[in-house]
Design a protein around this nucleic acid. Structure first.
Lengths: 210, 210
DNA sequence: AATAATAGACTGACCGGTCGGTTTGTCGAT
DNA sequence: ATCGACAAACCGACCGGTCAGTCTATTATT
C-alpha cells in the first residue's frame, strides 16, 4: 500500500499513482462511482488511460483501493488512540471519538466509504459490509471488555455495536452531504448520547480538538 | 393513486402497472439500480418495454416511484400508530417501534430505500435525504414534545433524531442483507437502547408482535 | 537493447430509450 | 346489433450514444 512495493521506480511512478488516486478520490466522492468516467480521472489527474490501467486492474479495483486505504487509516488511528492508554468504557469512548474525529478530518474518503460505496453491485456491498463489520466488531470487543470489568451492565453488545456504527454513519453522512451539524457539535452531542445508551455517563466534556 | 382517477380503464391497466411495480421492486431490491436491466423487469413482469414506458417516464422515475410508495406507507403507519393514543415519550416509543416493525414487514422495499437508493446520482441522493429528513423531523417533533412535557431532559433533538435514524438503518441494513439479528431481537434490544440514550427507561417489555 | 511507464486513439458490447405498429375496448350512428 | 372511428394500452425490433477496456506507439531509464 505504500509506495515502493517492489517495482523499481522509473521516472517518478509513485507520483503518477498518487495523482491518479487523488483524482479518483476527488471525482468519486463528488460524482459517485457510476457517474465518474475514467476520462474524468484522466483529466483531473493529468495522466492517461494507459497510466491508470498500468497501475490498476480496472475501475472497480481503483475504487476499492480507495475504500481499503481509508479503512486501514481509520483502523490504525483507532488502535493508535487506544494503545493501552485506558480500559473499559474509557476505551470505548476514545474509540468513538477517534472514529468521529477521523471522519471529520477526511471528509471525502468518508463520503466514499459511507455513501458512494453503498448501493453498487454485490462486490461493493460486500466490501462495505466487510469494513463495517470490522469496526463494529472492534467496538463490540471494547464493549464486552467494559461489561466484563463492570463499567456497564449487561447489554446486547452486537446490536449496540451495529446501532452505534449506524448512528455515527447517519450523522456523518448528513454532515458529509450538507455540512450541517458541525463536527464539534457532533462530538459533543453524539458521544455522550451513545455512551448514555448503555447507561454510562460520559466523563469528559469538551473533548473536541481544534 | 387509486384506480379510477378520471380516465376510463380499458382492459385492466392497473394490473399491468402493478405487475411492473412488483417486478421492479423484486429486481431492484435484488440487483440494485444499475445492475437491473429494463429487460429484466420486462421478463419478470411478463409485460414489455412499451408497457413500462407507457406507465413510467423512464427507469429513474420507476425506481423513485417505489421509494415514494414505501416512504408514504411508512409515514402513514407511524401516524396511524400514534394517532393521539398517547403523548410524550410513549409516543416516541410507539413511533420507533412502528418504524422498525414496518421495515421488518417490508423487507424488499426497506432494502431499496436503505441500500439501493444510496450512492446513485445526486437525484437519488436527494430523494433519499428527503425521505430521511421527513422521518427524522417526525421523530424530532415527538422528542421536542417529550422534552416540553418533562418526560426527558433537554437534548440536542436534531442530533438525536438523525442518530436514531442512523442506528435503525444500520441495524435494518444488516438484517436486510444477512438476515442476522432477528426482528424480535432488534425490537427488544434496539428500542430500549435508543430510549435510554436520552435517559428514558422503556416502559414495555416484550412489545414484539407475532 | 531491453524494459518500465505513459500516452491516447480506437473498438465493440451494452442498454436506455424510441417508434411504428397491433390489439383491445368504448361509443355514437345507423 | 353491426359497423366504423377513435383512443388507450401494449408490443418488441431497432437505433445510437456511451464508456470501460485494449492496443500500438512513444518516451524515459538502466
Amino acid at each position: 500500500m505504500a509506495d515502493s512495493d517492489k517495482t523499481t521506480p522509473l521516472r517518478d511512478p509513485g507520483s503518477t499513482k498518487a495523482r491518479i488516486l487523488d483524482a479518483a478520490l476527488s471525482t468519486f466522492s463528488r460524482k459517485g462511482y457510476h457517474d465518474t468516467r475514467l476520462d474524468d480521472i484522466v483529466d483531473e489527474s493529468e495522466t492517461s488511460k494507459g497510466a491508470i490501467y498500468f497501475h490498476f486492474a480496472n475501475k472497480e479495483r481503483l475504487f476499492l483501493a480507495l475504500v481499503d486505504q481509508f479503512a486501514d487509516l481509520l483502523e490504525r488511528r483507532v488502535l493508535d488512540a487506544i494503545d493501552g492508554k485506558a480500559e473499559g468504557m474509557a476505551r470505548v469512548q476514545i474509540a468513538l471519538e477517534t472514529v468521529l474525529d477521523t471522519f471529520g478530518r477526511y471528509r471525502r474518503p468518508a463520503k466514499i466509504l459511507l455513501v458512494q460505496a453503498v448501493g453498487l453491485g454485490n462486490i461493493f456491498e460486500n466490501k462495505r459490509a466487510e469494513v463495517n463489520d470490522r469496526f463494529a466488531r472492534l467496538i463490540e470487543g471494547y464493549l464486552k471488555e467494559a461489561v466484563a470489568i463492570g463499567d456497564i451492565e449487561q447489554v446486547d453488545t452486537e446490536v449496540v455495536a451495529y446501532a452505534w456504527m449506524g448512528a455515527i454513519y447517519g450523522i456523518v453522512i448528513r454532515w458529509v452531504t450538507t455540512g450541517e451539524p458541525e463536527p464539534a457539535r457532533i462530538m459533543n452531542s453524539l458521544v455522550p448520547l451513545l455512551l448514555r445508551s448503555v447507561g454510562y455517563e460520559a466523563a469528559t466534556e469538551a473533548a473536541a480538538r481544534p
